[in-house]
Simulated assay, not measured.
Amino acid sequence: MTIIIFIVILWYGGLFFQTFFLHRYAAHQTFTMSKVAEKITFILTWFFQGSNYLSAYGYGVMHRMHHAYADTKDDPHSPKYDASVFSMMWRTKTIYSDINKQKIFVEPKFTKNVPQWKRFDAFASSWVSRIAWGAAYVIFFLYFATAWWQWLFLPIALFMAPIHGVIINWYAHIYGYVNFSSKDTSKNLLPFDFLMMGEGYHNNHHKYASRSNFGGVRWHEVDITYQIMRVLNAMGIITMKRTPIPVRRD
């Protein structure tokens, strides 16, 4: 039971900071927060993502490119232009790495105001950090795993961020339903997105990219991350921006 709880904490902890910080803040800037709060969130993202840590700068820039070029040959990740999920994720990894290492030219519109903490990113993204987190996971499993099948969860812990990426960037462009017609293949993966904390409402998000609430178009579309953001906004930790009210296609 301890292993299951551990995986659930890693899944939703890492996912929350991916969607809250990397996606809604770094890429789309749907809210603002102080520089102190931003630095703390960088650290919390590293803590919960562990061996899967993603740079806010690399993610934010790449995700803006995804929206600009969705399902075209210039999209960093698209089932339409990749033969398999593995080739898509490898290409995504390469582009993400090239952005962080400034190996490719990126138009200024994709980098404007994207948060970056170079020294911390260099540490959190280093092999030393990733291997240390991986070793910590293995030690945790050695201590708490009580059956052989529980070890099947170790690869999930080690590669959780890529798994999250596969669910949205691959499956949410193939399966699901749509509320809005679009030039791309984005879909809402689940009617109630308990799995991806609102990220699964991908069609809604592609229609209203600057909107804090990815759900809310239909009665059952509850965006869990947005509800947490409302609490943080009420506490004065973040300030959410006004966003358009979605108009559903009937």
Rank of each mutant, 00 (worst) to 15 (best):
N52L: 09
Y81S: 09
V114N: 06
K80H: 05
Y25V: 04
K101Y: 07
G58Q: 06
M88N: 02
D82N: 15
M62R: 10
T41G: 08
E107F: 03
D82Q: 10
K35V: 01
V114Y: 04
Y57T: 02
D71Q: 07
F110A: 11
V85I: 15
K118A: 15
M88R: 05
A37Q: 07
Q29G: 06
G134H: 04
I131E: 02
F42I: 06
H67T: 12
H67Y: 14
D74H: 11
R119L: 12
E107G: 05
V128T: 12
M89E: 15
M65I: 15
V106S: 08
L44T: 00
A70E: 03
Q116I: 15
V128C: 09
D82S: 14
V128Y: 13
S34K: 03
T32G: 05
A26N: 12
N100S: 00
A26Q: 06
Y69G: 01
S125G: 07
A56S: 14
E38T: 14
Y69P: 05
E107M: 10
T45Y: 05
K35I: 01
A83C: 00
I95Y: 12
V36D: 10
M65T: 08
L15C: 12
K109A: 10
T32Q: 02
G14V: 09
Q18M: 14
I43M: 08
F16L: 15
H63Q: 04
S87T: 15
A132D: 11
H28M: 02
A68N: 13
N113P: 05
T72P: 05
Y96G: 03
W117C: 11
A56H: 13
T45M: 07
W127V: 04
S34V: 04
Q102C: 09
M65C: 13
I95E: 07
I104R: 07
A27W: 10
G134Y: 12
Y12L: 04
I104L: 10
F123A: 03
F42R: 04
M62W: 10
E38L: 06
A70C: 15
R64D: 07
R24P: 09
K109G: 07
A26L: 03
V138A: 11
R130C: 10
K109Q: 13
D98E: 13
